[in-house]
Design a protein around this nucleic acid. Structure first.
Lengths: 206, 206
DNA sequence: TTTAATAAAAATGTATACATTTATTCTAGC
DNA sequence: GCTAGAATAAATGTATACATTTTTATTAAA
C-alpha cells in the first residue's frame, strides 16, 4: 500500500481534524518514510481536494464548506442524468444484474459504516455510468462523488437517510429495467437534489 | 518561473508531439534541473490532463481524442449557463465594463496567436463568472476551459472561427447589459455548442 | 508599550546517491 | 528460426544532505 493510499484512507476516515495544519516532516515521521513520498502523496491529495495549501508554508485539512457542497451537488444534478442517459442504449441484463446485486448486498448488511455505504452507493451508480463508455465524463462524475465522500465520511447523517436512499435506488433500477429512461433520469436528479439538500442543511446547522 | 510553469507553457505551445514519450531523466537534463522538481511538475501536469501515464514507466503527451472533446463541451454546455445565471444578480457596470474592455482589446489586435485568443476568451467569460462568487463551480469551469486550450493551442481552427465567436461575445454582453439573463444563457449555450461541434468535426477529419 | 528591523529557527525546495522496479537484450534449449 | 529464461540496462521510487525561503523570536528605537 502506497503512502498516498494510506494518507487518503486516514483522511477519509476522519483521523485528521478539519483545519489541522500538517507539516511534511511530521507526516514523514508519523508514517515512517522520508519527505519525498510525502510530497508526492500530498500533492496528489491536494489536486483531489483532500488537502489544501495553507499560506506559503504548510498543508491543511480542509474544513466544511456548505457552499462547496452546494456547488458539487449542483454539478452532479446536471451531469449525472446526462451520463445515465448516454448509458441507456448500452444497458443489458448483465449490467442491470450487477447493479441489482450491489443493492441486494447493501440491503442484507445493516452494519455498514458511513464510508462503506458511500462506497457501495458509488459502486451502484458507477456500474450503470460505466456502460456509457465516456471516460472523461465518467471521471468527472467520479471525482465529484469522491469530493462528497469527504463530507459523508465524517458523520452519520447518511445513516438516517439510508433507507430512503435505498428505496430510490431500487425505483431507479426498476425504471431502467423497464426501459423508462426519461423517468429514470428524473428519479436520479431528484435523488441527487435530495441528498444535497440534506447534507447542506446538516452542515449549516452544525 | 517554476519548472511546472515552463513545462506547461511548452506543452500549451505544442513543443511536444502528441504520443511522444518522455522520461524524467530527459526532462531534467533538458531543463537543467534534477529529477525531483521534474517529478513534482509532471505529477501536477498529469492531474491537469497535460500529460498522461504511459504504462508503468514513462509519461506521454496525450493525443487528440474527439470523444474527450465531446465530453468536455457537453459539460461546459450544462455548467457554464448555470454559473452565468448565478452571476446575474451580482453584475454591475464595473464588471460589465471590464468585460467590454477585454472584447475591445481583442477587436483591436489581429495578430493574436491561437493560444492568446484562447486566453482572452477565457478572461472575458471568467470576468463574468467570477461575479457569481462560487469558487468550486468556477474552478471546475476553469479546468474545463484549460482542457480545451490543449486542443486549441495546436492548430488554427480558432482563427477561422474567431470573427463569429467575437460577434457572439458582443451579443452575449449586450444581453447581460440589458438584464436579459435568460437570453444571455441561451446565447452562451449556443456559443459553447457551436465551438464544440466545430472542434470535434475538425478533429474527426484530421 | 508598540513597532520595525534583525537574527534565529523551522519549513519547504532541490541535488545527489542509492534501492527497487521495469524494460531490454542475450543466450540456451527446443 | 523461435520461444523461455536469465542477465543486463534503464527508468522510476526513496533516503539523505544541503540550499533557499518563510516563519517566529528577539532586540533596539520611537
Amino acid at each position: 500500500m502506497t503512502l498516498y493510499q494510506r494518507l487518503k484512507q486516514d483522511l477519509q476516515q476522519g483521523r485528521f481534524n478539519p483545519g489541522e495544519v500538517l507539516k511534511q516532516r511530521e507526516l514523514a515521521e508519523q508514517y515512517g518514510v522520508s519527505r519525498i513520498p510525502v510530497r508526492d502523496a500530498v500533492q496528489k491529495l491536494k489536486s483531489e481536494g483532500w488537502l489544501v495549501t495553507h499560506g506559503k508554508c504548510g498543508i491543511a485539512v480542509p474544513g466544511f464548506d456548505p457552499i462547496e457542497v452546494e456547488d458539487i451537488y449542483l454539478m452532479r444534478k446536471h451531469l449525472e442524468p446526462l451520463l445515465q442517459n448516454l448509458a441507456l442504449q448500452h444497458l443489458n441484463s448483465e449490467i442491470l444484474g450487477r447493479a441489482r446485486d450491489i443493492l441486494s448486498s447493501m440491503d442484507e448488511r445493516s452494519d455498514l459504516t458511513a464510508a462503506e455505504i458511500g462506497q457501495h452507493n458509488w459502486a451502484f451508480h458507477a456500474c450503470l455510468y460505466r456502460a456509457a463508455r465516456r471516460p472523461t465524463l465518467f471521471a468527472m462524475v467520479e471525482h465529484l462523488h469522491l469530493q462528497c465522500q469527504r463530507y459523508i465520511g465524517y458523520q452519520s447523517l447518511s445513516l438516517n437517510y439510508q433507507d430512503r436512499s435505498q428505496q430510490e435506488h431500487h425505483a431507479l433500477l426498476d425504471a431502467l429495467q423497464q426501459g423508462q429512461g426519461e423517468r429514470a433520469a428524473q428519479l436520479l436528479q431528484a435523488h441527487i437534489v435530495e441528498a444535497g439538500e440534506g447534507l447542506v442543511s446538516f452542515l449549516r446547522q452544525a
